[in-house]
Simulated scan of single mutants.
Amino acid sequence: MEKVSQPETGQWKTQLEKISSISEIYFSKIHHMREETLKLSREIIRNSALSIRASHRSQFDQAKSHLTKSEHQLKTIIDICNENPEVYHSRFIQDAQKEYVEASLTLAFLTNSSMPELEMFSINPAAYLNGLAEAVGELRRYILDQLRKKVPLPYENLLVLMDDIYTLLASIDYPDAITNNLRRNTDIARSIMEKTRGDLTAASINQTLSSQTFIDQHHD
Rank of each mutant, 00 (worst) to 15 (best):
P152Q: 09
P152I: 08
L153F: 11
L153P: 07
P154V: 08
Y155P: 01
L159C: 06
V160K: 14
V160W: 07
L161V: 13
M162D: 02
D163W: 06
D164E: 14
I165D: 01
I165Y: 05
I165T: 03
Y166D: 04
Y166I: 11
Y166G: 04
L168Y: 08
L169N: 03
A170M: 12
A170Y: 09
A170V: 09
S171I: 07
S171D: 08
I172E: 02
I172F: 00
Y174A: 15
D176G: 15
D176H: 06
D176F: 00
A177G: 11
A177R: 07
I178Q: 13
T179D: 04
N181P: 05
N181C: 12
N181L: 08
L182W: 00
L182Y: 04
R184S: 12
R184F: 06
R184N: 11
N185Y: 10
N185K: 15
T186M: 10
T186P: 01
I188Y: 02
R190Q: 11
R190E: 00
R190W: 03
S191I: 08
I192Y: 03
I192N: 01
M193L: 15
M193P: 00
E194P: 00
K195V: 07
T196Q: 04
R197L: 09
G198S: 13
D199N: 13
D199H: 12
L200Q: 02
L200D: 02
L200W: 09
T201G: 11
T201S: 14
